[in-house]
Amino acid sequence: MAIPGQKQLTHMEEFMEGIWKQNPVFVMVLGMCPVLAVSVSAVNALSMGVATTFVLVCSTLLVSLIRKVVPKEVRIATYIVIIATFVTIVDYLIQAISLKLYDALGAFIQLIVVNCIILGRAEAHASKNPPLRTVVNAMGMGLGFTIGLFALGSVREILGAGKLFGVSLFGPDFQPWVVMVLPPGGFFVLGTWLLLFNWLKQRKPAAAQPVEAHVHG
């Protein structure tokens, strides 16, 4: 829903919002519990990202479709039931595909139900926008969350095990940084990525200023 006096975003801008301007991990810093807990490897990170994206897209689409018939008094409860339904589907799918992966992700699959990214998108966006715009926004947010998870998982697996997707990168002489697969490693890597992301965001406006000054001059 466009705010009065504010230009409505195009579908591409809507999609890119979640990847860059409102990235759930690097900008909004949401869903940190699964981000730090499951990002010990690239496979775990991508799996959780895909699972969260599936729930996010499906649940927000359904919320958008029924937004005009759900009473305001029970909307949050309705959203939670919808989200829990899709989380249950994902839970069974992961069990069917790989029990090893299911054990690695543990309780964090079920905790997608209370992931503030999904509930926030349902309340702030899906309940106010048509289905197509909702799906585009949800896909952008889901991809942004997956990128954030993969950025952590890949670095932690490379430094903590000398591997990526289970493939050895440095040979038998490499000494793994064991701290990277422990909880402190998650905080170290997240802090480094946040520092880099904020530096890039600040650098972009700074680079545009000389160009604007030259044009007005």
Rank of each mutant, 00 (worst) to 15 (best):
S39K: 11
G49M: 08
G49E: 07
M32E: 09
F15E: 06
V43I: 13
M32G: 06
A51R: 12
Q22F: 13
N23C: 09
V40E: 02
L30Y: 03
M28F: 09
I19D: 00
A42L: 14
T52L: 15
P24F: 05
G31T: 02
S41P: 01
Q22R: 14
S41M: 03
G49Q: 09
A37P: 07
V40I: 14
M28N: 10
F26H: 01
L30W: 06
A45L: 07
V50L: 15
M16W: 14
P24G: 04
A45N: 04
W20N: 11
P24E: 02
S47H: 07
W20G: 01
G31R: 02
K21I: 11
P34K: 06
L36H: 07
T52E: 05
L30C: 09
A42G: 12
N44M: 11
P24M: 07
F26D: 00
G18R: 08
N44L: 07
Q22Y: 13
P24H: 06
M48Q: 11
L36F: 12
F26G: 01
G31C: 10
G49W: 06
A51T: 13
C33I: 15
E17C: 04
Q22K: 14
W20C: 11
V27C: 04
P24Q: 07
E17S: 13
T52R: 01
V38R: 06
I19S: 03
P24D: 01
P34E: 02
L36R: 08
M32L: 15
V29S: 05
G18L: 11
L36P: 04
A42P: 02
S47D: 07
V50R: 09
E17W: 01
A37M: 11
G18Y: 01
M28P: 00
L30T: 10
V25M: 10
A51Y: 12
I19M: 06
P24R: 02
V50F: 14
M28L: 15
C33M: 14
M48W: 11
A42N: 05
A45S: 14
P24V: 03
A51V: 12
P24K: 03
M48Y: 15
V25N: 04
G31K: 02
Q22G: 05
G49C: 09
A45Y: 03
G18W: 10
A45I: 09
K21M: 12
C33Y: 03
M16L: 15
V27R: 10
N44C: 08
G31I: 10
G18T: 12
S39P: 01
A37T: 12
V27S: 07
S41Y: 03
V38E: 00
N44H: 10
M32S: 06
V35T: 15
V38F: 07
S41R: 11
A51I: 09
C33Q: 00
L30A: 14
W20L: 15
V50I: 15
V25H: 03
V43T: 14
V29P: 03
F15Y: 13
L36A: 01
F26N: 04
N44E: 10
G31V: 08
S47F: 07
E17I: 02
G31D: 05
V27T: 13
P34Y: 06
M48C: 07
V40S: 11
G49H: 08
V35D: 00
V38C: 12
L36I: 14
K21H: 11
A42T: 13
M32P: 08
G18N: 05
V50M: 13
G49T: 09
G18C: 10
M48D: 02
P24T: 04
S41F: 05
I19F: 02
A45M: 08
G49K: 06
